[in-house]
């Protein structure tokens, strides 16, 4: 059964068409990444699925509910990490989680959640003394304390240093092992690659490609051969790199030339991503 089903979802803000008919499904237990540059429509999508915004068109089903209408039963089953939310500065992490735990019918044990987000040793200090990364982890703990089936993470590691990001990735992976369905938005490609089972790339309110991260590169771009001739960079794109390279080197050998800076590369996922989200050059 799918946890989330989205069909032809549309949203506009005034004249600005934020979502131009996107469709996707997320299976239960899947970690799904919505990837795209700022302004592509990621947060709009997530906030419609969380029930914060009304859609202008299309169908949406989240855990069998219409988030636009669903009230308490729906919210008992989702966990939300917003892009920016400051927890109460004057409570301790233990108090913060206890407060939120009280809203749910079957919350997780607060001590367990503190362990899970790595704040057990900070349980009784005031939140205002925590670092930015620790506050974000507490925020994740708040999303998990109700023991939700589905967790929304809107850019969970934006602004993290590399070590904090690795730690957050570890936590998000542990959500998978708890059997949670996760919808993650990010503008970091490596994050989607590391965490998501499947990725949809959004650009200007449309999904431009969707699939497993590894499948996104498969054959979609040609190999690139680069070298310099007379100080100028030459780039050749080809789906027959062996033949082209052979001709090129044979020519150069015959002329007694050296192909400066010669390299052959396969496109990385990053290249694919950038080619998808960037404006084509005129």
């Amino acid at each position: 059964m799918s946890a989330i089903r989205v069909e032809d979802l549309r949203k506009r803000y005034g004249d600005d068409e934020a979502l131009r008919g996107i469709s996707f499904e997320i299976e239960e237990g899947e970690v799904f990444g919505l990837l795209g540059p700022n302004g592509a429509g990621k947060t709009t999508t997530v906030e419609i699925l969380e029930g914060y915004r009304k859609r202008d068109g299309g169908n949406v089903e989240v855990l069998g509910f219409d988030p636009q209408r669903a009230q308490r039963e729906f919210r008992e089953r989702i966990g939300v990490v917003l892009q920016s939310a400051e927890p109460w500065p004057n409570l301790t992490p233990h108090e913060t989680l206890s407060l939120f735990a009280g809203y749910y019918p079957r919350p997780r044990d607060v001590g367990e959640v503190l362990d899970l987000v790595g704040l057990a040793d900070k349980r009784n200090v005031r939140v205002k003394t925590l670092s930015g990364g620790q506050k974000r982890r507490l925020d994740l703990g708040v999303a998990l304390v109700g023991d939700p089936q589905l967790v929304f993470l809107d850019e969970p590691t934006t602004g993290f240093d590399p070590a904090a990001r690795r730690a957050a990735w570890g936590m998000i992976r542990s959500l998978r092992s708890l059997g949670k369905t996760v919808l993650l938005t990010t503008h970091y490609l490596d994050e989607a690659q590391q965490l998501a089972d499947r990725v949809a790339v959004l650009r200007e309110g449309q999904i431009v490609i969707m699939g497993a991260p590894s499948a996104l590169t498969g054959g979609s771009l040609d190999a690139e051969i680069r070298f310099r001739r007379n100080g100028e960079q030459v780039v050749l794109r080809t789906d027959e790199p062996t033949r082209v390279l052979h001709e090129l080197t044979a020519e150069a050998l015959a002329a007694g030339e050296e192909l400066e800076g010669l390299e052959v590369r396969r496109p990385t996922l990053e290249d694919v991503y950038l080619s998808l989200v960037q404006e084509e050059e005129p």
Partner: peptide, 9 residues
Amino acid sequence: ILKRIRSTP
């Protein structure tokens, strides 16, 4: 914080 609370039951 209010937005956060709106996502809870």
